[in-house]
Design a protein around this nucleic acid. Structure first.
Lengths: 207, 207, 207, 207
DNA sequence: AATGAATGAGTTTTCATTCAT
DNA sequence: GATGAATGAAAACTCATTCAT
């Protein structure tokens, strides 16, 4: 997971040399694998440095603690998810199509980066602040899109935050079920089509 | 959280005396508080026994490990959530109304028992099997209701598992946002009305 | 150094069984040796438990930290020094003779228990509060004796705290020089006689 | 604490340039503050270089180890104490007055440089050789003065090393009590007067 | 069954010292 | 000489689990 600008570095010690920058990057990448595979508590600093190929002590040159690198990682990943969604939304389309495209992108990203799903979820227990921030930001972005759609007359005018959270929950659980657990059960497009359809007309019989 | 029949005890040592039954109950109740407050990893057996007012060693008379009591608890709670929903669905109503009632009940339950929410969620990392089981069971129940609604001609005939998971995700995230975090931001009825409305007609402008 | 009532136990966990009391005692005795030989910083918990013949973890059943057992020890020893002095002062004697007897006792005790000298001294850096308390208490006891001597007309009436500290400093340094470092250079009685003579008449030529 | 010629540098690497001399001086000054504030073990090389405003690695250009700079410092300070005393003894006076002047000077110096007191004392545990040397040298200087006084007929002829150590102990403890801890409780002159009086006549009632 | 002491593997963290630039 | 990153040995401490009573 290299997203270019490590959001994490803010809270931690910034390397001053190129060599330092490389070591920091290696640590973050190794941590993503370690946390993804073993979870926060079973992961160990020495596991991270072993994967990164650095000495144990070098970890503390860049991070104060296991929590600190985890937080750095969550913020990195939250950013990466956002970026992936933004790219999927590059081309203009109707509001409903945009939601469908966003879900497709998310499902693909989740299938590709199952560790991201796991790490962000585990943040609920390890770094609640980041967890909350991630979902509040994501929810706010969805709400923005809904309002944009309403402005264009494509969506109802009374949509509010709860609608955004409902959509986000849908997406996340469909990601859990079909991208993380049951990859192959149903292709991303199909899942996104079902959800898109639900958003378009609801589930009641056609009136 | 006393749900009467500890489903969990199955996997553990059954008390033979009345005194033993009381101790077991005290341990489970104490564990719910300890895990709810501190999370699985920060929780300690000695914290549990201290809250339960028993000796440290007594814990192992009833449970094989920290994981074992956690699992017992998760299954207890999964059961409790199911029971709460079932009660809310006692009276006959239209399919859409049933979903709304189920969400209202869930939101109320979650606000009342925030620790349940946390413990079940943490199971994703501590006891993935129980976690999965909880959501698969819950999803299956929702799907049952959807099919029932379809049979009665109230809901569309093409609803499938993905619809159930979409609804479940909606519910869970609305619970997180409005019951666990933002109790008071929006009353349960209002949240459930919004979600019900979404299910009824989607979010597009009225055709 | 077994002084009967471990003053230390106050701040730490009290054993509830006889077995526990034995373990605690073994730890304190082992710590006295370990700290005496290696000093606070070079001493290690595992060194203490190895000497005590207990498991590493058992240490933490009774003490919260290395600092905690050190403090316990310092207070134990401060008490032991007091007791040794008190015994030497049991029989009635003139005020000057009492001071001489006290110094003799102290020198003997210090020669016998060099580790006590070291540990109390190191408290200046490890546990300043105990260090201060030790010397303030000791100084106060000396002052009491001086006042008693003044009341009986044996000593000058204008003696004050500074006199007590001067005497205490004399004693401590003579202990360092002749009991701890140079045992054998000069016997305790001879050192005490010199100091006693100084107190009796000063160092100026006889008027 | 700049005493001009760092006695310590002898054992370490001598700077060859003016710039090097400045860096060395900065390190010693920083170390005095760091050791004085945090004690030897809590002090860190990086703390010293941070205060000195140099890079961590530069430390090893001038000193071989943490112990080495500590030793350098102790010898610097031992020298500084000696110098302070010598200055106070510049003018001719009676033997008793000289001792009083020496104590006054010491008390003033100690109040002014509390860190010196602490660092020299801690040497007992960090660099016992320097500690011993400091007190043996100091004791020898006092004994010299006592003998000089005896030669002039002002002091008794039978004064020996133990008298010098008794006086030194008095001085040190009065310094601890009234200069380091209780600055203000009693002015230096008053303390020195009491001690001088004790030396002059002892503490017994006037014969 | 209950009690509470004993165990020791396992992890994080520190920091003096070395090294590459 | 100066810089700052890298190293890794060493220790404190935790706590689930076992055991003796």
């Amino acid at each position: 997971m290299d997203t270019g600008t490590p959001a994490a570095a803010d809270t931690n010690k910034q390397p001053r040399t190129e060599r330092g920058r490389r070591t920091l990057r290696k640590l973050l990448d190794a941590a993503a694998v370690e946390f993804g595979e073993r979870g926060f508590h079973d992961a160990s600093i020495s596991g991270i440095t072993a994967r990164a190929g650095t000495a144990l002590g070098s970890f503390y040159t860049y991070f104060d603690s296991k929590e600190a690198i985890f937080q750095a990682l969550v913020r990195d990943m939250s950013e990466a998810v956002k970026v992936a969604a933004r790219e999927a939304l590059a081309e203009p389309a109707s509001a409903l199509e945009r939601e469908r495209a966003a879900l497709t992108a998310f499902l693909r990203f989740a299938a590709e980066h199952k560790e991201v799903y796991r790490i962000i979820d585990e943040a609920e227990f390890v770094d609640p602040e980041s967890y909350r921030q991630h979902y509040e930001t994501t929810g706010a972005r969805i709400l923005d899109r809904l309002r944009e759609g309403a402005r264009k007359g494509e969506l109802r005018a009374d949509l509010e935050e709860a609608h955004a959270w409902a959509i986000m929950g849908m997406n996340v659980f469909l990601g859990l079920r079909y991208a993380v657990w049951g990859e192959g059960d149903l292709p991303a497009e199909r899942v996104a089509a079902i959800a898109g359809d639900l958003l378009a007309k609801g589930i009641a019989v056609d009136r």
